[in-house]
């Protein structure tokens, strides 16, 4: 039994060192913390689960000494700033942040940098120059939807836009991308715009309210977590189902699959994989390891097409969101690719 375990460890160590050469020796004593501002939806829950999975495996393999996750209760800048200060005092070597605000945490982030702590922000990034940023090209995420529709609908037509949470950076960016796409494809016109707060029930309600006042809608451009609600609203209003761009949620993909099987319905789905937290983890590890990492990285978003629908659906946890977790090698590829 004992020999067996030691044997396993040896194999693990050998495999590990083959893959990562110097990494193990240099960061095995380092502690990485995740400072997360919000956990109240399925995307964030998946993000935390991915972090825990990859982080605890890294700890077990001796790559790092700790990979602890901390989430603030109230999604507030002051609370997260205080949390980051605590993490500095607790002596973490790196802090990975999903930030409540792009600017609001800069003071605390600067303090961390000055204390010699590596700061990596992702998804909700911070603007403080000393931090690393793993940004998503949200504008492009909006634009690809219109480009896809331009392919599908050569005559163009009326669009309904479902936005996210008003006042949030991500919402402005995706919407700007959608509008930029519409400007380039003048055959489309956005007839209405509602806020769905990235929640199916909110989107359903907002769409149900505006739908009676709209002319025929050819397609619905979305931000994720709102496509299924939109579909329900169209159904309840007795209207034909337009092309609704989906956002990688399991219920959205399931609905798409049902429509595809029933009537050959075609659409696309795009969102960010919650596993981007694991990319941030490896970036922090690489910086601690002394490797050169660009200050600004861009992470690709996860796009699901008509052809990859079945495969993505099969790989997505029921009720969850389509995900990709990064290995160290994947992460090095993203780092060097930039």
């Amino acid at each position: 039994m004992k020999i067996n375990t030691i044997g396993k460890l040896c194999i693990l160590a050998t495999v590990g060192s083959m893959a990562t050469t110097s990494a193990i020796a240099d960061t095995s004593g380092k502690r990485i913390a995740l400072s997360n501002n919000y956990a109240g939806n399925s995307w964030r829950q998946a993000m935390l689960t991915s972090w825990d999975k990859v982080g605890s495996a890294a700890v077990a393999d001796g790559v790092v000494a700790a990979a602890d996750a901390f989430t603030t209760a109230e999604n507030q800048v002051t609370e997260q700033a205080a949390q980051i200060q605590n993490l500095i005092l607790q002596g973490y070597d790196a802090i990975v942040i999903n930030a409540a605000s792009p600017e609001g945490l800069n003071g605390a982030v600067k303090e961390a940098c000055d204390a010699g702590v590596v700061v990596v922000s992702f998804d909700g990034i911070v603007t403080e120059p000393c931090a690393y940023r793993i940004a998503v090209d949200f504008k492009q995420m909006g634009k690809v939807q219109v480009e896809y529709l331009a392919d599908r609908l050569s005559d163009g037509g009326n669009l309904l836009e479902i936005r996210g949470l008003a006042g949030v950076f991500v919402d402005d960016e995706i919407s700007a991308g959608i509008h930029a796409g519409v400007e380039e494809n003048a055959q489309f016109e956005i007839q209405g715009s509602v806020h769905g707060d990235w929640a199916q029930d909110v989107a359903q309600k907002a769409v149900a309210g505006i739908l009676p006042s709209l002319p025929e809608i050819k397609a619905v451009v979305t931000q994720g977590g709102d496509g299924y609600g939109a579909a329900q609203a169209f159904k309840a209003a007795g209207r034909p189902t337009p092309i609704i761009v989906m956002g990688n949620r399991h219920d959205e993909l399931t609905w798409w699959k049902e429509q595809k099987d029933a009537s050959g319905y075609e659409t696309m789905s795009v969102s960010i994989a919650p596993g981007v937290s694991t990319l941030a983890f490896w970036v922090a590890q690489q910086v601690l390891d002394g490797n050169s990492v660009p200050q600004d990285l861009t992470v690709p978003f996860l796009e699901i097409t008509q052809d990859t629908l079945e495969e993505s659906l099969a790989n997505t946890q029921a009720g969850g969101v389509a995900n990709v977790e990064y290995t160290l090698d994947d992460s090095i590829a993203v780092i060097t690719g930039n």
Partner: peptide, 13 residues
């Protein structure tokens, strides 16, 4: 039942 399932933020509003 109405909106196709429970979500963590369904009560927020």
């Amino acid at each position: 039942g109405f909106s196709g399932g429970a979500a963590l933020n369904m009560g927020e509003q």
